[in-house]
Each structure stands twice: as C-alpha cells, then as structure tokens.
Design a binder for these strands. Structure first.
Length: 649
RNA sequence: GCCGGUGUAGCUCAGCGGUAGAGCAACCGCCUCGUAAGCGGUAGGUCGUCGGUUCAAAUCCGACCGCCGGCUCCA
C-alpha cells in the first residue's frame, strides 16, 4: 500500500501498515520518537492500520496531540487499576463492570460500576496502582474482532460493554486495546506502552453519572482525573483550580456580604443583602436606560397567574415537572407561580386592537419568575428557584423579525462590553430532527431558524449550531459564559416565537385593514439577574469597578480629632451621589485599611492633620494601585466622571 | 431527583468513645496612632435534626435535612 507524507513524498508500505511502520520506514529519530500521527486530519496511534493513500503526518511527544493519546490510555489504566483494587479486596475478576472512559478537557474519566462504592478516600490507593502499571511499562496491542466474537467476550460479564458493542454501526471495525491484565473495547487511539505516559496525573474526584447520560438507566461511578505532559503543567492546573476557588461567588458573596441563601427561607431562594442589592440595582439601571434608548416600554405584572393562562400558553403541563405545583382554591380555581413572563405580556398586547403602526411593540419587565429546579442542581446564584429576568417581549411583523433580532444582539453585546465580559460564546439552538417535543409547524420553524442565523451572521457574531437546543416554541440564540471553575452558564437569550401568538390568537390590523398574526421575540440580555450577578462577582473576583462597587469610598480618620473632618468629607461625597462611609471605629488606621482592603473597597481616603489643614484627602486607589493626595472637590469630580462613564477601572 | 462526600461559635478550622477548643469577627475597656492585623478583658455552641448502640456519643450506626462535587434537567 501507499501513503503520502507532508512533503508530498509517497511511501510504499506492506498491506495494512500502521503508523509504526511509517516511523520504521522513515528511520532515524522517527523510529524512536513517533507516538502517533495525524492521518487525513484524524489522530491515529501507532497501532491502527492506515487507509490506502492516506496523508500521514507523524507526531512526537512534543506535539499537543500527544496529550490526547496518553490521557486516553490513562483512562484504561484507571479502569485496570480499579479492577485490581477490587480483586485485591477479594472480589472476583469480573466484579467491576465498565461504561465508557473518554478524554476530556485537562484529563479523562472512566464510568465504572463497582461491587461496592468507590469513595474519594480510595483514590490515592487506586492512583498508586496506576503508577505501578506505568512503571511496569506494559505494551498495548490492538485487535479487531467480529461482532459475534466481541459479544461473546462480554457475554454475561458486562452488560454495558455488550450494549456499547451493539451501538457500533455495521461495517465499522470493533477494536479492542489490551495490555497485560486488561482489555477494553475501544476505538483508540493510545500510546504504545504504559511507560510512555507522563506520570503527571492525579485522580481528582468521583461522582455519579447515568449510563449514556440517561436518568432512567443505572447510575455508574465516574472517576475523574487530570493529566499533563509536565509536572509544571499539572502544578499550574492545580494552582489555577485553587485560585479559581478564591473567586467563587458563593465564597465572595459571604465574605463581602452580598447575598444569602437561608435554608429556613428555602433552598434556591436568594436573600439580597444591602451590598449585593447595589450590584443588582446598578445592572438594572444600566439595562433600563439602554432599553429606554431602544424603544422599550416598561410594564409590571404579578408573580402569579391563572393556571388557564399557562394551559393556553402550553407551559402547563409541558413544564409541570419544573414548576412549583399549582395553588388550587376551593372552587377549583388554580394559580401558578409564574415560571415565565410572556403570557402576562401577551395579555397586555391582546388588551386592545393593535395596529401595524404600533409595531414593533416592545414590552419590558424585570420580572421575577419561579422554577422548581431539581435540588441537586441548585448552585449559589447561578442556579436558583426564584430569579428576576431582564425580560422583554417584542411583538412585530414577520418582516421586522430580523432587524429586531439584530438590535437585541447589539444591545447584548453592548452591555457585555461595558462589563468587560469578552469570554463568552454564542450558540444557536435549533430543533432536534424527528423529535415531537416542539409545537408549531415546520414552515414557521424553518423560517425562524433561518432568520436567527442570518441576523447573527449580519451582526458578525461567531456562533455554533446546536440541534435540539431550541425552546419548545421556537429556535433561539444563547450567550454562554464560563464561571471561575470552568463551568458553562447560559446568560442572555433571544428567541423567535411564531407559536404563542397563534395559541393566544394574537392579531394586529395591517395596512390592508385585515387582521395579521404578529411574531414574538422573547429576549433577556442578562438572562437571570441572579445568575448574571454571580458571574459578574467571579469575573471581577469581587473587585468591582467604581460604578458597581457597593461601597465606593471609605474615609478613615487617623485619630479621633480627625473624625469631624472625615464626616464633613463624607457628607460632600454622599451629596455628590457616591456610596461613602466613615470608619469611626476605635482602631488603628492600619487595621482599618486592612479591613477595607479585604472588603475590596475601590477608594480608601485617609485624613489626618495635613489633609484637614489643606482641605484634601489622601487617596488609596485599589484598582489603580496608586496613592495620591487630592483636594476634595477635585476628587469628587474625577470619581463622578469614572462612574458616569462606567469605566472598568 | 440520583451517586459520592460533608455538616463543631457569625467566619475559618482543631478535637473523632470519658461530656467542647483556637484564631478572626462581635461586645467592653485601655491606646490617639500616617497607609494591610496595638493591648487586655467579656460573651457566644442542645457539636445539622431525630433515632439507635454503649455505663458513657461531637466522636460509632441508621434515617432525614442542608451544603459541596458530578449526573439528569433547564421554557
């Protein structure tokens, strides 16, 4: 057979040759250093036969792809180690059953069904066995079996693997990778010997995971590990995790007294403390003024609505699982805590005859909604059971959809930019083909999906398409960010909806004097204010820019005799609209500075004899990391500017 | 909801079969101080809850509740 090399040269090899044969043929340092290859764009190991005519680029330990190879093999080593761990405990050879063991960002995991639960405390012992397997430097072999042979291998031994074999499409090779003492169904690729795996890995935690991610299937135990090429990368990674924990919004929320989740009030229900509420209010003020500038009108609607309303909208019983149960009155009248604002806004639209001249009609509300999220899913501010959306519903003509959609993208990008949030991605959720969980007819769906994509493209937005991520009534564009620990959260969302107007039989009178069906756009640039504040806390690590800071300035008198002057300065700052305080505690100046630095207050003003005489303040600017003396009115002027422009400094 | 872990003072944590401790915070007092912790004192906990084992339980066991890490879900 023949293959092609990156320099265009062809190489003649024996039939069914592997990357190892290529390395051998090339000789020299390749023979020693090749660990795999990129074959027609796909990562191959040394063991898998090459396709005829393939383009082969060899890789060594220095290439980033190497990481993928050894992480994958580490997953196998982990599974082997767990098997040995339980054999040592006296369990039979096949007591441990295996799911899948893939490579993930920074490492790998393996889903395991053990004879008794694995706990975090077992990880060091399992890790020790893994290191021993690396030390033994076991060679890996790749074998291909027929479907019958493969099934026979796991017959009555491992139901998961049996099922996985069944999932392999007809015609694809059913390959196994083995090393001494362990064989696994696997498509590869792997390193050729366990000794080639860098020993810089660590098992991090164990968690439950449903087989194939399906909660109706058995739950396996997923053991997670991280692995890197060098000791430094591993250390760096572990350090980053520790550093990220320092900016966890739940920790900062407690330390900076921003918010509280009190079990006595109820889980997933946020109590906003005075300081945290400042963040909320500032963000709402920002959004309110931007929306006003873009032609939105504010409305206010109640926290509950009649069950009939949600039956008409289709939210009930479709989402009954994730709603607080209806409140039923004696005469069978029932109400639902509102899980969404749209039905209320729809009734405002429907309240009178609407003309095409009124459209687009943009009804906005910072509306609080309640959803019965699963208890295990609750998480600080980012997953709660009651939250406020910066919600609005745009009622428009079909022709206006794209422009309105683009305008919302513009608004969203604008506020994200003000906050310096640049690390987000956009994804367009479309229907999952063949699923029956959507309402509305195909033509409308196709049209909406096309309009969203065009709007995003025309706004120059990079996005990914994700089938199955649509809302039940229409496709959507979501903005997604990562928190300090790398978890992804959905923030803003824009959704086109042809269906609710139909369900509520909404119409407007067109220029032709006849009724027409409006289109709705659901949109929330922040999404949930709670979640957004949570992300903002982590984004700034609690060191908020001046305009957001709950306390903007603190004045520290050096001794008692400076307190009066401090209060005078404070009065001037407060009159100028700054959130300011005097620290009049019986403490040394140093101690006060330390306390307020820990509270991450942006501006600390120290006043003593000199300042009192000159009518100045000594400024300690946290974000600029500088100190300077300034006249009070001058300072006020400069701070007001920073705030008005919402500068990030 | 499921699997695993965890729960001691407001916070961070020690104690892990013999009946509860530290630092910080709070409160009182002294100190009047120039850019990240001055000193002394006081008060504060039915050791998440309920049940079991034991002469004796914060400590061992069970259930429940909360929290943490995942999984599932997310209009």
């Amino acid at each position: 057979m023949k293959i092609r090399l990156p320099d265009g040269k062809e190489l003649e090899l024996r039939p069914n040759a592997t990357v190892a044969d290529v390395a051998e043929a090339l000789g020299g340092r390749w023979r020693k250093e090749a660990v795999g290859a990129i074959v027609d764009g796909e990562l191959y190991d040394l063991l898998k036969p090459l396709p005829e005519g393939a383009e082969v680029r060899l890789i060594t330990k220095k290439d980033p792809e190497f990481q993928h190879l050894f992480r994958h093999t580490l997953a196998h080593v982990l599974a082997q180690a767990v098997k040995e761990f339980f054999t040592q405990k006296g369990y039979p050879e096949d007591a441990v059953k295996l799911g899948i063991g893939p490579v993930i960002e920074n490492g790998f995991y393996y889903d395991i069904d053990p004879p008794e639960p694995i706990s975090d405390a077992d990880l060091p012992a399992i890790e020790a066995i893994m290191r021993d397997i690396l030390r033994r430097n076991l060679p890996l072999r790749r074998t291909v079996l027929s479907r019958e042979e493969a099934l026979a291998r796991y017959q009555d031994k491992d139901p998961y693997k049996t099922e996985l074999i069944g999932d392999i499409p007809e015609g694809e090779p059913i390959s196994f990778y083995s090393q001494e003492g362990f064989t696994d169904l696997c498509r590869g690729p792997h390193v050729p010997r366990t000794g080639m795996i860098p020993p810089h890995f660590k098992l991090t935690h164990v968690a439950g995971a449903y087989f194939k991610g399906d909660h109706t299937r058995p739950q396996l135990q997923r053991v997670y590990g991280v692995a890197f090429r060098t000791k430094e990368e591993l250390k760096e990674h572990l350090w980053r995790i520790e550093a990220a924990k320092q900016r966890d919004h739940r920790k900062l929320g407690r330390e900076l007294e921003l918010f509280l989740v009190d079990p006595m009030v109820g889980k997933g229900l946020v109590l906003w403390l005075p300081k945290g509420n400042v963040l909320r209010e500032e963000l709402i003020t920002l959004m309110r003024s931007e929306q006003k500038a873009r032609g939105y009108q504010l409305v206010t609607t109640p926290h509950i609505g009649s069950l009939e309303l949600y039956k008409t909208s289709g939210h009930y019983p479709y989402y009954a699982e994730s709603q607080f149960p209806p409140m039923t009155l004696e005469d069978d009248e029932a109400y639902l805590l509102k899980p969404m604002n749209c039905p209320h806004h729809i009734r405002i639209f429907a309240a009178k005859k609407r003309s095409y001249r009124e459209l687009p009609l943009r009804l906005a509300e910072f509306g609080t909604v309640y959803r019965f999220e699963q208890s295990g899913e609750l998480h600080g501010l980012t997953r709660v059971r009651g939250f406020t959306q910066d919600d609005a519903h745009i009622f428009c003509t079909p022709d206006q959809v794209k422009d309105e959609f683009k305008s919302v993208i513009e608004l969203t990008l604008y506020v994200l930019k003000i906050l310096g949030l640049s690390d987000f991605r956009a994804r367009i959720g479309t229907r999952e083909p063949g699923s029956d969980k959507y309402v509305g007819d195909d033509a409308l769906w196709n049209r909406a999906e096309r309009q969203i994509q065009e709007a995003a493209e025309e706004m120059g937005l990079d996005f990914t398409l994700e089938a199955g991520d649509a809302a039940f009534y229409g496709p959507k564009l979501d903005f997604v960010v990562r928190d300090a620990l790398g978890r992804e959260w959905q923030l803003g969302t824009i959704q086109v909806d042809y269906n609710l107007p139909q369900r509520f039989d909404l119409t407007y009178t067109g220029p032709d004097g006849t009724p027409h069906r409006p289109v709705m756009i659901h949109r929330a640039p922040f999404g949930s204010i709670e979640r957004f504040v949570g992300i903002i806390i982590e984004h700034f690590a609690g060191e908020f820019p001046l305009w957001l800071a709950p306390i903007q300035t603190v004045i520290i008198p050096i001794t008692d005799r400076h307190t009066e002057y401090a209060q005078k300065v404070n009065a001037e700052l407060s009159a100028a609209g700054l959130r300011s305080e005097v620290d009049g505690r019986q403490e040394r100046m140093q101690a006060k500075i330390r306390d307020w630095e820990k509270q991450k207050v942006p501006i600390i003003l120290v006043v003593g004899d000199r300042e009192m005489e000159e009518g100045t303040v000594a400024v300690r600017d946290r974000r600029k990391k500088t100190r300077y003396v300034m006249a009070v009115d001058e300072l006020i002027q400069s701070l007001k500017e920073r705030i008005a422009e919402r500068r990030l400094e």
